[in-house]
Design a protein around this nucleic acid. Structure first.
Lengths: 346, 346
DNA sequence: TTTAGCACTCGGTGATCGAGACTGCCAACC
DNA sequence: GGTTGGCAGTCTCGATCACCGAGTGCTAAA
């Protein structure tokens, strides 16, 4: 990593102009274009000198000697950290989001699916949405259904009408009547608690309720393992948008990315590692640990439910993207999602 | 459409050889290659005459005057209908399928997801799996959860531990106790029936149970509409496999296909129209009504649960595919899926 | 009916060339 | 010292061209 060379005002403006122009045109930006479009007071020769400096300090890249300049990952980073101006989401984007969420189903799953769909549509990139952690969700209702004498289907209704199921096997045969009674009893006790809290308070049940206790243990166990292996669920949508970007005419670039998207687990790991120091976190190109994302950027934020941060929402796109606009729209959809989730009740 | 020209034995063999060779190499097949690899007794000139005939009758295509021959959709059709020899799935494929299904979760959703994953893996194409129709599924258990005084979450446990949920609003406030009693009552009556049957037998409830009746009506209604708008669910997996096929180096071909896959609804419509005259149905290239599938083939079959056909499973791939092998593997995964679903109990 | 031979066609490859786009550098200028 | 005009140099891209080779269609003979 190069040491953080401070950039004087004019270099900053030139870097900003290069990023802005390149994200729109996709063509390396030359000194003449810059002089004509952005710096009428300066000659192209002056700009050439500055550009040479910016290449030297690693903010810009020159594909070949007689080409214009392209921002490096470092250039983009400087841009988003210091130069990018806050943008507001366009009226059309806002309208789209509003309309789509009006027809969203009233369940967490459905809303998150919708969010993924809308986000990919308004950003023209691939959207990512992680589901809330089950173990942190409040339990609203428990139901026990007898499948076979020694086999029980546990149904958990969590806040936001998120439903989780698990089949467990019992040592002893139990009738549906017994199960119904146990479920009624459990519903009294568990209401509004999270699975984590439940695990802590397990001892409150007297030792005489051995079978109940076993079911609860299995239940908590299932939630925990559920989270560990399956909470890797990352919804995504909009791969078709990616195909329109010229950076993906080479299918080979898509291949690694598709693998990442379809397998999910690795992607979930990446998303979980994101430390949200600001409200929107941007990861650019090689800053990504995963090789499939070498030439992509992630723009991520969180969404809330019941006033707590519950998941990540954002997009993957080529490093050459209109960051200001994407940030505005990711934020827009995140807020809209939180809003709709809030109205689900808890 | 050309009239069905009958092909003599030798023309059939040549067509078969062209299809076989082309599906492996991907290169237009010339008369010399055919003579050397498949017809040592014949000279290339003889084969040239036959090839010219096959082009004339529309079974083969010649990209340009000095190129070899490629099967047309018609050629592939003739091949799969009359020439293709039944193949058995390879031992590796069988092993993969077996291993993967051993670790499958014990729910319909999980199993179908797994099926999609495995199928795409063993065929190296995109897999498609439709979920069972909710309205045809037997109801195992009903649960009613009070969300707000006038708002109820209906949970349906269907055969195969498939869980469906729906929020309905009631005209009158109802307590959880009331709901629990109603649920208990309903469970006595509905067990083992399908939603369709339930709709028919609705009258059996006396008129005195007006509120119950209303809830049940809403419930049946929700199941039916659920099916109408959302049963468009088509799982898919393995887009990454498609990228490896040389026919998709042009991303433009992928674009329409991805749209079809991500939107789902249109695809569901296509799959529902398939008339399964044989156990495996093959749709080749332009036989597809959808333009996005002009250069793709579908190999489809059904899977069963509780001895009834419940859904479609199959793959999308380039028209140039090893049909015999794909058919064998689609069939393999279909059988394995039905098998695992059977063990879920009902 | 099959086959050998032959002229012909056409796509693909590689080389060459020129135009165009930019640059870097230098010398002059403010 | 920073800025600028001028200019030679570099590199990509697209067009053109020739050539090779694969493969064909046709003809005449077996």
């Amino acid at each position: 990593m190069l040491e953080p060379t401070p950039l004087d005002e004019r270099k900053q403006q030139i870097l900003k102009a290069v990023v802005s122009d390149y994200t729109v045109t996709g063509v390396p930006v030359g000194s003449q274009v810059l002089a004509a479009k952005y710096f009428i007071a300066l000659s192209s020769a002056t700009i050439r000198n500055e550009l040479a400096d910016l290449v030297g300090t690693g903010y810009l890249h020159q594909p070949h000697t007689s080409a214009g300049r392209i921002p490096t990952d470092r250039g983009y980073r400087y841009f988003v950290d210091f130069l990018m101006e806050p943008e507001a989401a366009s009226a059309t984007a806002r309208r789209t989001v509003k309309q789509e969420f009006e027809t969203a189903p009233r369940s967490v799953d459905g809303i998150l699916e919708k969010a993924a769909m809308v986000l990919s549509q308004v950003t023209e990139n691939v959207s990512l949405v992680t589901a809330p952690e089950v173990s942190e969700s409040r339990i609203k209702h428990i139901d026990l259904v007898s499948l076979e004498p020694q086999s029980v289907l546990i149904i958990l209704v969590l806040e936001g009408n998120l439903i989780k199921q698990q089949v467990v096997h019992l040592e002893r045969a139990t009738t549906q009547d017994d199960l119904s009674r146990m479920a009624a009893m459990l519903n009294q006790k568990v209401k509004g608690q999270t699975a984590e809290e439940l695990a802590v308070r397990l001892d409150e049940l007297g030792p005489e309720k051995a079978e109940q206790r076993r079911i609860i243990e299995r239940l908590i166990d299932s939630i925990t393992t559920h989270q560990a292996q399956r909470q890797t669920v990352v919804l995504h949508d909009g791969v078709r948008n990616l195909l329109r970007h010229p950076e993906f005419v080479e299918v080979s670039r898509l291949e690694e990315l598709m693998e990442l998207l379809e397998q999910g687990a690795q992607l979930a790991g990446i998303l979980q590692q994101v430390a949200f120091e600001k409200d929107v976190e941007i990861i650019i190109g090689r800053e990504n640990t995963s090789s499939g994302l070498r030439e992509c950027s992630l723009v991520l934020t969180t969404y809330k439910m019941a006033d707590r941060v519950r998941g990540t929402i954002g997009v993957i796109g080529p490093t050459r993207m209109h960051y200001g606009q994407v940030v505005a729209r990711v934020r827009l959809v995140s807020h809209a999602t939180s809003e709709v989730l809030a109205h689900l009740g808890n």
